[in-house]
Design a protein around this nucleic acid. Structure first.
Lengths: 359, 359
DNA sequence: AAACGGAAGGAAAACGATTGCCCTGACGCT
DNA sequence: AGCGTCAGGGCAATCGTTTTCCTTCCGTTT
């Protein structure tokens, strides 16, 4: 913050008290005011501030000082109008903003923020009408690109056809293979879970997961079964499909204990299921992980940490997915559109529930 | 979607297959193109589409049809430039986007979406530098207003002084009493919790909560103690300050059982603490709610439902706070600025953990 | 029949920033 | 001395909408 101004005509008091906050601003300054203060034309001021044109260093400096003194920030609307781009991307979450959308959003914001791009967030709440409404709104705002996310990984119908801006699907994927989607590699995650259990010496492994009509549940279950048979093993029990809840985990524990008592490990389709299972198993006298090892899915902090013992889990790297999606949008904006479906690998985060030597 | 166009010059194929998605759009149509198609001047087209001016109904209709045919959406940048407002508000979350920010965001989006206002979301991650950076960005984008939120209810230094747009603080409050803040009435919530426990017949009530240096913890504790003494009671134990975690809840259970064994109810500063407490109490042989009733705080779905028995909790109505904040921003934009701190009451959601006749 | 008034719509000036083009000196070279 | 060159900076068009005047034209009134 430069010292107090001299002949500023616009009423505009600088903070002057060493605070890092912006000073009093009654009305946003325009580049013409900056130019007037620096004694140049608006066009020259623009060049000075954007590093264009051929200007004397001294002139450039004078303009920059004037801009700082007036707290000048270029009017984005005017700039967009002239440039034809807005340095803005829209993010439509088809399902309500929730546990999965947040990390995606953070990741995307991360990648875009570095490029000075802002995010318009729209919550379509799983309502196609709202979705189309938001789509129009975003197009009207001339966003440079759109990221579509949702709560389920299942493929969804494309949000629009031949839109004037690039669209990338994150977490969910588009049913149109020509669209660009970034999804977690759930099958890979499930494989890692099973292989981890094998690596810590388990052989009687069961799988408890969400509803059978849920894409994630079936994909993970198939991959888990595949990994078992690749190791020459049978599952300790048929896959138990149910809900994504702790309650189902508890229920499933009862089923397992009565039908497959010799089970020594359970891979669960979600952390919540795993937590319910852990509680019920221990109430029934089984020790975790000594008798039964557990692996969850999602690596949701409150669940893995709240569970006793702390839960080994598969992290889908949602932030990474958001970041990748954003990078692909940026690339597409810059004329390098990507197509097809990218599956990002997750990672297994080992914790006490699969420890070989429990504490 | 109207049928296929007749003499449209711009290449623009309508979907034509009955889908609800937007048709192919290669380049956004301008109002001049709409006007040309309708055979009027751009100015007239603008009036027709915005319901201004004196136009023949037939002309208006013709323009509207042309607009629909071309998939016209007004360029928001141009509109903003001319109107001096952007129909956009910025939302800065000082702490990372998290459990508290989401409902606030949803509430705000709700109130703003109805007014055709979009939300720019910025995650400052508790970093003052990022915060000021985002503030400048938002001002450059000429947002019409700003909502500042965070994870703690504690008062914070104002984000800026005399900004050119209205600012409303949601959940957190500004240290400057002249600023407009919307916060939960935590004291009221704590009172309700204690009164509920009294109403279900408990008299030996303890309070376990988060760290003593945390504003929420002290406010809630003070209000809880106040409610007890208003009923002529002493707490069953001194307030136990610790952390906002399940682990602390378990620990606290041990402390309570050894120092205040006759406790018949615990009001917890968070659902997580309550859940830890519930588990530990039951492991120690106490029945919930028969021997000890429990009330949590936050009404966080995964905690209250995951807890056994389901947890009675105080809901701070975060969505309501977000909605109220947004409404106040809109009011301020329309020239009716509000000042001061508004505390919104929460509500108690009774569940099994305080049931008089447990199932 | 002349004058007035209202309805309908066109023309053009904003809004603020950017940018290509042009103008003006000053300097160097022959 | 005269011409060419180039640095430095001003001018004006442009982006797409809105809005404020105007201009027309037609019907009505006296």
């Amino acid at each position: 913050m430069q010292g107090c101004q001299g002949k500023v005509t616009v009423v505009r008091s600088a903070a002057g008290n060493g605070e890092e906050t912006l000073g009093a601003i009654d009305r946003a300054a325009t580049i013409s005011e900056v130019a007037a203060l620096a004694g140049v034309s608006p066009g020259t001021a623009s060049k000075a501030l954007n590093g264009r044109g051929a200007l004397r260093p001294e002139t450039r400096r004078r303009v920059q000082e004037a801009a700082e003194q007036l707290g000048f920030v270029a009017n984005a609307a005017a700039r967009s109008l002239q440039a034809g781009r807005t340095y803005t991307v829209g993010m439509i979450t088809t399902d309500s903003i929730g546990r999965f959308s947040i990390p995606l959003l953070i990741g995307a914001e991360d990648a875009l923020g570095a490029g000075q791009v802002s995010v318009f967030l729209c919550d379509a709440r799983d309502d196609p009408i709202r979705e189309q409404y938001y789509l129009r709104t975003l197009l009207g705002r001339q966003v440079d690109g759109i990221i579509v996310t949702g709560r389920r990984t299942q493929a969804r119908p494309p949000i629009g056809r031949s839109l004037p801006v690039p669209v990338v699907y994150a977490f969910i994927s588009s049913a149109d293979p020509a669209d660009c989607s970034v999804v977690p590699d759930e099958a890979d995650g499930a494989r890692r879970a099973v292989e981890h259990l094998l690596a810590v010496g388990r052989r009687r492994i069961a799988h408890v997961t969400g509803p059978e009509h849920h894409h994630s549940a079936t994909v993970r279950a198939a991959a888990a079964m595949g990994a078992l048979s690749a190791a020459g093993l049978e599952p300790a029990a048929p896959v138990l499909f149910g809900e994504w809840s702790e309650g189902w985990g508890r229920q499933a524990a009862g089923i397992l204990l009565s039908t497959a008592a010799e089970v020594d490990a359970v891979f669960c389709g979600s952390d919540q299921i795993a937590r319910g299972l852990a509680e019920a198993l221990q109430e029934a006298g089984r020790r975790v992980p000594a008798d039964v090892a557990l692996v969850g899915f999602d690596n949701w902090d409150v669940m893995v940490d709240g569970c006793r013992p702390a839960l080994t889990s598969i992290d889908m790297d949602l932030e990474g997915i958001g970041r990748t999606a954003a990078e692909l949008v940026l690339a597409a904006i810059n004329g390098e559109p990507a197509h097809g479906r990218r599956a990002l690998p997750g990672r297994l985060v080992p914790r006490a529930s699969t420890a070989v030597h429990p504490a």
